[in-house]
Computed example of a mutant assay.
Amino acid sequence: MTGSESRSGVALVLLVGGLAGAAVYWATLPAEPATRSPLARSSMDAVSDISVPLADAARMPAIGAMPSLAGVDIPPGPESDARGNLRLTRALRTYFDFFLSARHASGDTQALDPLVYDDIRKHVPQPAAGQAMQLWQRYLAYLAEMQRIPANQSVVDGTGAPDAAQIQRLRAHIADRSAVQWRHLPDVASIWFGDEQTYDDAMLARLEVAIQSGLDDAERERRLAALDAALPEPLRAAREMNARPQAITETIASMKASGHSAQEIGAALAQTFSPEVAQRYQLQAQADHAWQQRYDEYATRRTHIETVAGLSDQDRAQQLATLRQRAFSLPSEALQAEVMDRAAAAKRAGGP
């Protein structure tokens, strides 16, 4: 393996996460890029931006009722154009994601509907309010279908080198994801996901260059540089930011080890990296905390079933499966809980 191939193999570990959901890209790219493809423009997006305060006092009573949203900056809400229709912007996705971060505390996404609609109406009148609510429902349908698409497998083998067959499976997964986006969200698919699709396509092309045989280091680097040069400027900036996850991870780990709160860590991330990175961290921290609470409650009930005397192995396994299904309605959550259960069992078997 050449030096370039080795470096590419190491970079793939970070790259897979970005391709799976463009998480690093979404967290670090500015909320509205300076330029975008004509496909990303809508006839409903023709008026100038309207400034909306991040912490509108009128919104706080309803949103404040959700503990998992406490301490997180509220993204700008929906806007209407001169005709009263909803402006289709990428900021709407961030706005909806803000409410989705409370889905564990609320029980399910349907329980969020009244809260979302109440907040939408504080920003825009009809017909924009109804259009925003319909878009929210279609976004939920998109996310629900994405939950049923199998997660990506690793694109590196045991030596850290990329695997061609797995890269093709990853490409197929991204194509499936794009099809789901266009089926549920045709009016905002380009606006919300177009840049991510361009970015993912470029990163897949980089992977294919990394595994192409017969290239020396100089030619491989030349081709990789050409791919970078072909990216729009905002995406080149996002590509450069991919070098930051390790620093972000180390900052978070260090501050957690020192006992800092999520708010303190968010403030440090905002100062060192960007407010967008900080907000995404805070939302994820809230979601992680809510998940851990749910898992701890489930684990208590699981332990009771495991220690009840007189149950056959079959009955015990059935009760445990039923408990997991009731506690975690989404298949991905149930799988995560099962993985954590197995890890805990392995730790107990191995002793302290």
Rank of each mutant, 00 (worst) to 15 (best):
V188F: 05
A189K: 02
A189N: 07
S190R: 08
W192A: 09
D195G: 09
Q197M: 08
T198N: 03
D200Q: 15
A202Y: 01
L204I: 09
A205D: 14
A205T: 13
A205E: 12
A205G: 11
R206T: 08
Q212S: 13
Q212N: 06
L215V: 04
L215I: 06
D216A: 10
D217L: 02
A218E: 13
E219Y: 00
E219K: 04
R223H: 07
R223N: 14
L224N: 01
L227K: 09
D228A: 10
D228F: 05
D228L: 08
A229S: 14
A230W: 00
A230C: 09
E233R: 12
L235A: 13
R236N: 04
R236M: 07
A237C: 07
A237E: 15
E240L: 13
M241Y: 07
M241N: 14
N242C: 02
A243P: 02
A243H: 11
R244W: 11
P245H: 05
Q246T: 08
Q246G: 10
A247N: 00
A247I: 06
I248W: 01
T251S: 06
I252Y: 10
A253T: 12
A253F: 09
A253L: 12
A257H: 12
A257F: 07
G259P: 06
S261I: 02
S261A: 09
Q263Y: 03
I265K: 00
G266L: 05
G266V: 03
A267R: 03
A268M: 01
A268R: 08
F273A: 03
F273G: 04
F273W: 03
S274Y: 10
V277N: 05
Y281P: 00
Y281H: 11
Q282W: 03
L283M: 14
Q284N: 10
A285L: 02
A285K: 03
Q286F: 07
Q286G: 13
H289M: 04
H289A: 15
W291D: 10
